[in-house]
Design a binder for these strands. Structure first.
Length: 271
DNA sequence: ACTCGTGTTAGCTG
DNA sequence: TCAGCTAACACGAG
């Protein structure tokens, strides 16, 4: 699920419900989710501290941490990445639980898929729930390697990020070091709205193409955040072998571009 | 049984 | 050295 809109929702839940609560226990025993830290390392770094802020750049989140006690040095930032399927759940003292996204069906909350958790002094918990296990929790995450956040990027920043190199435009949109936050579905939605063939080389884009893509990205992001996720995009449902373009009803085409499955309208986004 | 995947990244290549 | 591409990662869903 998580692309920028879903991560922003998760960040907001952390900001609203997890800050300033005393951390009395940490389960960092999942070696893979907490790589490259050794078990207990994150736990030792966070015990007795509190999360003091919830931040996001692209799909990466991090929380600053307080000192231990009244005047200790601040702790290391706690980085959280939801990967392909991660979700955040936060419970309060009476056990009521909130999450940043859709309801989880069936045994979706099963403890075996909780890969990391903080327990607060009031008995509530923050849990990272991640079936696929491609999410990641780590101290002092690298944020500087990311490009400007896709939400709020300026037209000149967008133009610069896109123009670099010779890759297909879809690959560049997915490049987190160029623009942070665009995933596979959001890239397809943006290219469809902007009427650009995903395989077009970035050096061949005309200024008018870049302008349309900029507006399309902003529309896609705003809409996804308002409607609950990138899966609410207009072209997403048409990403099927029998799919039709929602605007002109032409057939959709499929190929692997930028290493990811890519769908586009054969007429409006013709090569 | 078998293939695919809304993300990241180590490793290879030109 | 760097941009670009591929395979690998883990494991559930269809």
């Amino acid at each position: 699920m998580p692309e920028l809109p879903e991560v922003e929702t998760a960040r907001a839940v952390i900001a609203e419900r997890a800050l300033d609560r005393l951390i009395v226990d940490v389960d960092d025993s999942d070696r893979y989710e907490c790589r490259p830290h050794a078990p207990g390392e994150i736990r030792q770094a966070l015990l007795g501290r509190r999360l003091t802020s919830a931040n996001r750049r692209g799909k990466s989140m991090w929380c600053e941490t307080s000192g231990v006690g009244r005047c200790g040095e601040p702790g290391p930032p706690l980085g959280i990445h939801l990967g392909m399927a991660g979700r955040i759940f936060i419970s309060d003292a009476d056990g009521d639980e909130a999450s940043g996204g859709d309801p989880v069906h069936g045994n979706g909350t099963a403890a075996i898929w909780t890969r990391f958790s903080l327990t607060f002094a009031d008995g509530g918990r923050l849990r990272l729930f991640d079936k696929r296990r491609l999410g990641r929790v780590r101290l002092d995450p690298d944020i500087l390697g990311l490009g400007p956040d896709a939400l709020g990027i300026s037209p000149p920043q967008f133009r610069t990020a896109l123009a670099r190199g010779t890759a297909p435009v879809k690959a560049r949109l997915l490049d987190q070091s160029a623009i942070a936050g665009v995933g596979n579905l959001l890239a397809d939605e943006t290219l469809w709205q902007g009427r650009v063939w995903p395989g077009r080389r970035v050096q061949d884009l005309l200024p008018a193409d870049v302008d349309r893509l900029y507006r399309a990205l902003n529309r896609s992001l705003t809409s996804a955040i308002a409607n609950g996720g990138v899966h609410t995009g207009r072209v997403i449902n048409a990403r099927r072998s029998d799919g039709r373009c929602p605007r002109c009803h032409a057939a959709m085409a499929r190929a692997t571009i930028g290493g990811r499955t890519t769908w586009w309208c054969t007429v409006e986004q013709a090569a």
